[in-house]
Design a protein around this nucleic acid. Sequence first.
RNA 1: GGAGAGGUGGCAGAGUGGUCGAAUGCGCCUGACUCGAAAUCAGGUGAGCCCGCAAGGGUUCCGGGGGUUCGAAUCCCUCCCUCUCCGCCA
Length: 423
Amino acid sequence: MLDPKLIRESPELVRAAIAKKHLAVDFDAVLAADAAWRAQLQEVERLRAVQKGANAAMAALAKGSPEFAARLAEMRSVSSQVKEREAGLKAAEETCREAMLTLPNLPHASVPEGSTPEENVVYSTHGDTAAAAPGAVPHWDVPGFARLFDFERGSKVTGAGFPFFIGDGARLSRALINFFLEEGARSGYVEVSPPILVNAASATATGQLPDKEGQMYETTPDRLFAIPTAEVPLTNFYRDEILDAEALPVRRCAYTPCFRREAGSYGKDVRGLNRVHQFDKVELLKWVAPATSYDELEGLRGDAERLLVKLGLPYRILLMCGGELGFAQSKKYDLEVWAAGQRRWLEVSSCSNFEAFQARRAQIRSRSRETGRTELVHTLNGSALAVPRVLAAIIENNLEADGRVRIPPALVPHFGKSHLAFA
RNA sequence: GGAGAGGUGGCAGAGUGGUCGAAUGCGCCUGACUCGAAAUCAGGUGAGCCCGCAAGGGUUCCGGGGGUUCGAAUCCCUCCCUCUCCGCCA
């Protein structure tokens, strides 16, 4: 949600933001809804002031006195007016709130123009993609792949996109999780193991509801949602709370499985480990002082990036253009790892600054000790990293002539062996 | 799942229809005293929204929602949560 004051005072900024994100939003309707709500609010508050003034007077009068009876009759009429107008006010408020929720976050000035993936800016590229093994094949074509990643039985047990990880497949997945968490801790993020089912209020605060309801798995009869990312429980940890400004930035990291229905994404990107409905991921999250959030975004990107460096995988960083930004994001970097066998880039991390957009929805503020004032914090999050795609990249980039996969040295202490075998 | 108790400001804890955003204590801030500190004394100390250039004014909030009433922290309904005991269980 945007600051209502900004919408009223600088509507041109909001219009420009909508245009940069290439969204179709009826902004005039938002302005009208806001104006209507304020007009009704003022009238109701005026009537309430009358009511309150009379209360004190009536409390001082004797119950049976004629003065009391007169006042009572008068106030009955005011009371019914208040009730009537309050109903209208409530409707106006709801209309206004819904209108406000259609407004996207403003993109940062440094975000490039554009509406398609091709218009994302390649911010930097690292490692040699050309030198990758000439005989590299997509990970699903490696002999023995199905023994470590059993999609068929996963389909039988649950459904398509829910593979079993077996033997060294499971072991490498666990090693990556462990490596990511250890590195996160080293970078100052406190490890958290959050709930992986969340309620509707939490899903709304981070923006999954109402827009993306169909993308989440939902449980009945409790109406809890399987998290699509640890961002949801982590961000909501401080929902409706006021943090000590001196304690910022607060850094947390969490490993969780993530669940995504990926409705409507049937196509060629779904083979093997590229896109599955349940996957493991380590997420980094920061709550920061507004003045520092863009520096913190660079730091966050660096924290995620370092993992790819340590794993020795070729990767690149994209600065996402306006049209490719999520609804709630002000600026976003995507980290993509090179999958040598598929000869394509796989997104393994998204590092975003949400500024106060999520914090306003979730009511997460900080209080300065000097001024005593509260302000909305800025939230940032990023994957570090998504496990299955990194695993796929390791297989494709490190496959040796004998059919074994060389484990990156940084991972060996966690994996316990220098090679993964499909046999 | 069953029975009972309870949800009030940063914390503890009063308040059972009227002048209550709410006593009191603790904490915190400011001032006095002091070389300084402690102790003591005095004062201050919630959040949001609307109007206003501002000064300031108005209004909402006592777990959430709804109701009764001229008026609700207080009465009624409903939902949520916490605690204790019992049952079940990794």
